[in-house]
């Protein structure tokens, strides 16, 4: 980003916030449902010192991180297995096409029944939802592995497992990272969705749902959503940077990935 673009961005953001502030104050005063941006920012500041809120954020992030870790651990090896055994890959493709259209949140009621422990329930749904993008990107990556690279190592006496480790895995890294980035935002969405519906749990979603049922202080709710957005932004930023770094050493041809 150039200096001028940054300055414009700052100005645009300030102008939008100011416009919202004036509109809200002119229309409804302080008591309406719509809080003014300054009120939201004040609430966001207070939440930083509120142990209940920071615990909720920690709980959501813990579920998110465990879920992502398990999803990567399941999806990447599964991708390798399915593309090395062709008959199995073909047969599993039908199952993937059958399961993937099910909106992951439709499984929340089922998960609420099956897993009595909220953490386990949330983690399972996060894993379920975030496995697909990583798996599909891994499968896609393995179809793109360069034949010449594989042949080269074969000529130099490398077996199938060594070729997978030294060629297929590293050349899949950029695609796997794309899958992880897509999954990371899906995982956050699913974690918060589940928390909205899981009574007696902790997490950002639970905090927001409780604030709503306790009479609805909208400034606190928007502040909570704002923090969720900041977290999402940071995660996405970190993963995008990782992807760029990887792309510098991995000039893989036609690198697009599957969104």
């Amino acid at each position: 980003m150039t200096g001028r673009a940054a300055l414009r961005g700052l100005f645009g953001t300030l102008a939008a916030v100011a416009a919202a502030e004036v509109t809200v104050r002119a229309a409804g005063g302080f008591s309406g449902d719509l809080p003014a941006p300054t009120q939201v920012l004040a609430a966001a500041g207070e939440q930083l010192a509120d142990g209940e809120f920071t615990d909720a954020v920690g709980a959501t992030l813990r579920v998110w991180a465990y879920g992502m870790l398990i999803a990567v651990g399941v999806a990447v090896p599964a991708g390798f297995l399915l593309s090395s055994i062709r008959a199995l890959g073909t047969a599993c493709q039908a199952i993937v096409e059958f399961l993937r259209p099910i909106p992951s949140v439709a499984l929340i009621p089922l998960a609420l029944l099956v897993f009595p422990a909220p953490d386990r329930m949330k983690t399972s749904l996060v894993v379920y939802a975030s496995v697909w993008p990583i798996l599909l990107n891994t499968l896609y990556a393995l179809r793109q592995v360069d034949r010449v690279q594989l042949d080269t190592l074969k000529v130099f006496g490398f077996g199938a497992a060594a070729r997978a480790w030294f060629v297929s895995l590293p050349s899949s890294v950029p695609f796997i990272l794309t899958g992880v980035r897509v999954s990371a935002s899906v995982a956050l969405i699913v974690a918060i969705s589940t928390e909205l519906l899981a009574v007696g749990d902790t997490g950002i979603g639970t905090y927001l749902a409780q604030t709503q049922s306790a009479g609805g202080q909208t400034d606190q709710m928007l502040a909570g959503a704002l923090w969720a957005g900041v977290i999402g932004l940071l995660i996405n930023g970190a993963l995008t940077t990782a992807e760029r770094r990887a792309a510098r050493w991995w000039p893989v041809s036609g690198k697009e990935g599957v969104a």
């Binding site: 360069d146 030294f166 060629v167 050349s171 050493w249």
Partner: peptide
């Protein structure tokens, strides 16, 4: 005891 050099050097070296 055999080695091979391919035409597409860009593809036979590992870029990472």
């Amino acid at each position: 005891s055999l080695a091979m050099v391919f035409q597409s050097y860009g593809r036979s070296l590992l870029p990472w």
